[in-house]
């Protein structure tokens, strides 16, 4: 089997230093694909399927399995289950979400008090959000009664178990005191949709873990590794352009003859 030199394209611009990769020639005669550390298409296909399954993209996962002949998700329904939970949380329907989670496996929340607390806290926030969003003038104190009722029944019994819970509860309750226009960023972030996303991600991980599956898609580690490797290279004072493009933008290709790795 032969090897070829591949000079990474964008590193070429400086002409000061090359990074030359030893890739097996494309003329892999037999199963030489397994012989390299470098990613081939089936590796990439794997990491994409891994992402689609673990982060809940059932439609894409199904099509991808068909188009690549990669073995698809064993159980598409379990992905859809997680998607339903995610959608419920994203949509602020926390009661529904908690019910769905318990349908999947009641032990998930029993064993993960912090997660359960976060869900209940988000539920309280959603109740407050609805009250705040009511049309008309500023809400009067009595409008908040359902929120206070929920807090005292569901959240306050948990607060003493951990100072973190107590603090979080206090902050959430404060939402009812400030008029929305006078809220500090610290409180505003409680009402931000990103909190829903964060809780949804945590719940997804917890469900995966409860099934004994890896809780984070590998592609997340992969791009972190790319960032880390660049940091290490710069720390080692290897000559590198200020920005090494990923090749996502059309502009990245300008200047290169084919924009691809140069094969010599």
């Amino acid at each position: 089997m032969g090897l070829r030199n591949v000079v990474l394209p964008h590193w070429k611009k400086g002409w000061k230093r090359y990074v030359v990769l030893k890739l097996p020639r494309k003329t892999n005669w037999q199963s030489t694909n397994t012989n390299t550390n470098l990613a081939n298409k089936s590796d990439i296909n794997w990491v994409i399927m891994d992402y689609l399954v673990s982060e809940g993209y059932p439609g894409a996962a199904e099509k991808f399995a068909q188009e690549t002949n990669v073995p698809g998700p064993v159980d598409n329904e379990s992905i859809r289950e997680r998607v339903r939970v995610r959608n419920a949380i994203h949509g602020g329907r926390l009661a529904e979400a908690i019910e769905l989670i318990n349908d999947i496996d009641p032990e998930i929340l029993d064993n993960n008090h912090l997660l359960h607390f976060h869900l209940l806290q988000l539920q309280l926030i959603e109740i407050i959000r609805t009250i705040l969003a009511k049309p008309g003038s500023n809400p009067v104190a009595t409008d908040f009664l359902p929120a206070i009722k929920f807090a005292t029944e569901q959240l306050s019994p948990r607060a003493p178990t951990d100072p973190k819970y107590q603090q979080a509860l206090e902050r959430t309750m404060a939402l009812m005191i400030f008029p929305p226009e006078k809220m500090t960023p610290e409180f505003k972030e409680l009402l931000d949709e990103k909190l829903r996303q964060k809780v949804a991600v945590d719940v997804n991980r917890a469900i995966l873990e409860s099934r004994g599956e890896r809780s984070e898609a590998k592609i997340r580690q992969l791009i972190k590794a790319r960032a880390w490797a660049e940091h290490e290279v710069r720390a080692a004072k290897v000559d590198l352009p200020a920005y090494v493009p990923l090749g996502l933008d059309a502009a990245d290709e300008v200047g290169g003859d084919d924009g691809d790795a140069m094969v010599s």
Binding site: A39, R226, E232, L246, G259, A261
Partner: peptide, 27 residues
């Protein structure tokens, strides 16, 4: 068609590997 034969994600992998190689070889 005048397009790169590898997608950005593949390139990201190759870049990472090349960078790791570079650092490992140096120190």
């Amino acid at each position: 068609l005048g397009k790169p034969s590898s997608a950005a994600l593949e390139r990201l992998c190759a870049q990472t590997e090349a960078m790791l190689d570079e650092v490992a070889a140096k120190g």
